[in-house]
Design a protein around this nucleic acid. Sequence first.
DNA 1: TGCCAGGCCGAAA
DNA 2: TTTCGGCATGGC
Length: 277
Amino acid sequence: MELSFSDDLDLGLIAESGQCFRWERVAAYEWRIVAFGRCLYAAHERPGLLRLSCGEEEFVTIWHDYLDLDQNYAGIRERIDRERDPFLASAMDAGKGIRILRQDLWETLVSFIISQNRNIGAIRRSIELLAKRCGEPLIDVRGRTYHAFPGPDAIAALTEEDLRACGLGYRAPYVSGAARAVLAGECDLEILKGASDGEALELLMRLKGVGVKVASCVSLFGLHRLDAFPVDVWIKRVLATAYPDGYPFEAYAPFNGVYQQYLFAYLRGTNAHPPTD
DNA sequence: TGCCAGGCCGAAA
DNA sequence: TTTCGGCATGGC
């Protein structure tokens, strides 16, 4: 099907934004996206028009929400006083098209436990190995195999050796522990979804291997708490250099996480853009 | 090859 | 309460 859009939406920027790890570039303007046990091919056909490999029904039930298409990102950008914060203004110009995906909570939790102290390429690799090892094998619309992200039961059933074979290193017991905590109900994903922002952070950090940074990423990308503000080495750097007198968290609420994402993408120097002609 | 990565844990100060 | 060493591994 075709999807016409007028708000921010740049697949390349989203793919490289460090929030998702199962987007694979398959052509200049086309990505293969695995999420919620499905596989979607999405391509920039021309400005304002995507071509999607799914039908209307799957789009409405899955991908519309996944892409957060009910949120107005241009409006979120326009809240910023460009003269007062020229650095963020530049970051937004470069990152126009980024959206915060509504990803599966469990997958997001595991992904960001895996993410600690690793670069994005290595995170992708581990998640793919994990899915191959114990995720359900499926066939996409082009006949290629993909693997659904494994549930807590499948991951809990793996040995530490299995997990280390996915390149998890010392994070293996963290991933295993999270799976067991969810299975046992000690970490209730449904309760997390209904918790306040502060409660969600606190509950997530009860898991071993989940500190404030990972909990913030899970809040932002898995619970869609758009005010969550993950601070990694890149963000720490920009706070010290571009905002030596403090960062205006209060003024930027309740979208601190969205602005953080522009800053992150800007610092990492991603420059993927859809066709403009 | 070395440096670094969407950091966290546990101990020491 | 803050600081700091150690940690597994792979990308660049």
